[in-house]
Nucleic acid binder design. Structure first.
Lengths: 162, 162
DNA sequence: CCAATCAGTTGCTTGATGCAACCGAGTGTG
DNA sequence: CACACTCGGTTGCATCAAGCAACTGATTGG
């Protein structure tokens, strides 16, 4: 999306976008939220060019949004995890998810539903449990495939898209 | 940020980013939230190239996020306003604002504060009034310059940056 | 008549992205 | 043992988007 910086902008929105506003960045974060942790996994899920993915992952690690952990030596292999800073992007993702659900609807219904881990209640646009009323954070929620997702999978067996 | 589209992604986040994920798009929306309505106003506030601003505005109008109204004939002059769809980006902007406030802090404190129009209470990260507890929407809130903004203005008299 | 305002458009250059091929270490298969 | 495959990248090259400056067209003000 963005080159990277927005000089002269005294604005926290611009500052956020400098960090996560580049093309693919937020989708990579979303993928890690979805449980994809490895380079190849994210690459095939997103269809992003490998050099770009490499650059974005490095940036996200540099910005302390992701953490790169070695899960195997010889050959060295890595997995990416969300830091607290990364987890705190959850409200942003929820807001985008809901806006997309509303204005770019998937045929058959929302492709992804968010539920409160504790009580199972649906999670509102603002990340609040509609059953128990709690203001939730990333760790309090789980995702389940929604009707739109299931419909799409029934239509085309492949296409693992998140 | 983004070229434009993320094919094969069955995901409302990706769909949202296809619409507003391009470089400058969200900052243009933010500017209109801030009361900038005219081409030149937005251009100088953002420092975006004029051809790019032109393209983004057209896209945002095509996507029904902004509305272009003629405020003068001969020569024809236009202003841009947020539609309901555009106003519904408010929670996303609030989420980005708060994430930026937290992780890319402006020296002196947040540059922008959001308050509930009705009761004057501060607005939380989720767009909820911390005084009266209401879940707010774009029209319920106003912005006031925060300490970081005032500090920056005192330092450099110019720099109208939003 | 000349300069300025406003909302763009046009042309050219620079920079980011996409694509395919390659690398290096190790595993699995015949 | 040779060969193919996996994984996590890097490299080179072509293409597409963004940045910059100049220009247009209509109108007002001096």
């Amino acid at each position: 999306m963005l080159r990277r910086d927005y000089p002269d902008q005294i604005c926290s929105i611009a500052k956020s976008l400098e960090v996560i506003g580049e093309r693919w960045s937020l989708l990579i974060v979303r993928d890690v939220f979805n449980g994809h942790r490895r380079f190849g996994e994210i690459q095939t899920s997103l269809g992003v060019a490998r050099n770009v993915l490499s650059a974005r992952l490095q940036r996200l690690v540099d910005e302390d949004i992701l953490e790169r952990r070695r899960y195997q030596e010889n050959p060295a292999r890595y997995e990416y995890f969300l830091t607290e800073k990364g987890l705190d992007l959850w409200p942003t993702l929820i807001a985008l998810l809901n806006w997309g659900d509303r204005y770019s609807p998937t045929p058959g219904g929302p492709p992804k539903l968010i539920r409160h881990k504790e009580c199972g209640g649906p999670v509102s646009e603002r990340g609040i449990c509609e059953d128990c009323g709690k203001v939730l954070h990333a760790r309090d929620a789980i995702q389940v495939p929604g009707p739109g997702r299931l419909a799409a999978m029934a239509g085309a067996g492949a296409a693992e898209s998140a």
